[in-house]
């Protein structure tokens, strides 16, 4: 039988071709960008919309490796630490809350009866629509930004953990109880270890939304942060700053995702995602 390299259902691309194929869209995108950038810069050397790689490298050099003359801080570092702190706090609180609520709702029908409807309701409210209320009631400092991330993703995590717990075989629970486990042991020794890997998976999936909420919050009112900088320099169309910042956010997002995946594999090798 003929082995297909690339086309068709039975194709089996060798590793070198896989890597090449994966790189191709990136190369095309880059070439498209560089071509368009060169065209515009040839027409108007002061054009700011599609800066050249050298201009972007210059901007990164200035923001990341030289202290700001006025505040004497490294701007990009400061923005990154502020944003990551908000993100970590928001996602961390959401994960902890989601785990606790979801687990208890799934395991104890009484808790489920109280909380399921309200969590479902909250998860459908679009957090961005109530953003002004958050800012007005919680102030323009860190609290409102963390609260936005929290409100944006904790209901989803809760519901996912709830579904996972509800899908556990009932026999397992009965067996644990008949072997003498009390209800606390059941929740935190039998069920919890089984939903932990699922929690990591859900957090991975929620991170995209968390970034979105973080940047939206920083765009409304802020003194630092990655989203703050992007919306600030947009004021004078400094795409030479915006594009590297977007790439940096993408890289950070990818790194966090990778770390979580690594943790999942190390801590829960039995779990098949």
């Amino acid at each position: 039988m003929r082995r297909y390299l690339f086309f068709g259902v039975h194709a089996d691309p060798p590793p070198w071709l896989r890597r090449l194929a994966a790189a191709l869209p990136f190369v095309l995108l880059l070439a498209l960008y560089l071509g368009a950038s060169q065209l515009r810069l040839a027409e108007n050397p002061d054009d700011k919309i599609l800066p050249s790689l050298a201009q972007m490298a210059d901007a990164v050099q200035r923001l990341a490796f030289r202290p700001d003359p006025r505040s004497e801080e490294y701007v990009m570092l400061k923005d990154t630490t502020s944003s990551l702190a908000r993100l970590a706090l928001g996602v961390g609180l959401s994960a902890a809350t989601g785990l606790l609520l979801g687990l208890n709702m799934g395991l104890f029908p009484g808790m489920g009866a109280v909380l399921l409807a309200i969590v479902t309701f909250v998860s459908i409210v679009p957090p961005l629509a109530i953003l002004p209320i958050l800012f007005i009631s919680l102030g323009v400092d860190e609290l409102a930004k963390v609260a936005l991330i929290f409100l944006g993703i904790f209901p989803l995590i809760t519901r996912d953990i709830y579904n996972t717990v509800a899908a556990l075989p009932r026999e397992q629970i009965t067996k644990a109880l008949s072997l003498g486990a009390n209800e606390l042991q059941l929740a935190y020794r039998i069920v919890l270890p089984q939903v932990m890997p699922r929690l990591i998976e859900t957090v991975r999936l929620s991170l995209g939304a968390a970034w979105l909420f973080l940047i939206a919050a920083e765009a409304i009112a802020s003194t630092d942060g990655l989203g703050y900088r992007i919306f600030l320099v947009r004021r004078y169309l400094a795409m030479d700053v915006i594009i590297p910042y977007v790439l940096w956010i993408t890289l950070l997002g990818y790194l966090i995702d990778w770390l979580l995946r690594l943790a999942l594999r190390r801590l829960y090798p039995w779990y098949q995602a």
């Binding site: 002004p132 800012f135 323009v140 009112a221």
Partner: peptide
Amino acid sequence: VTLVNTSDADIASLFLAE
């Protein structure tokens, strides 16, 4: 002073709330 970059759409209500 400390400058807080604030969207013009929300600035009045945020100011009034503080």
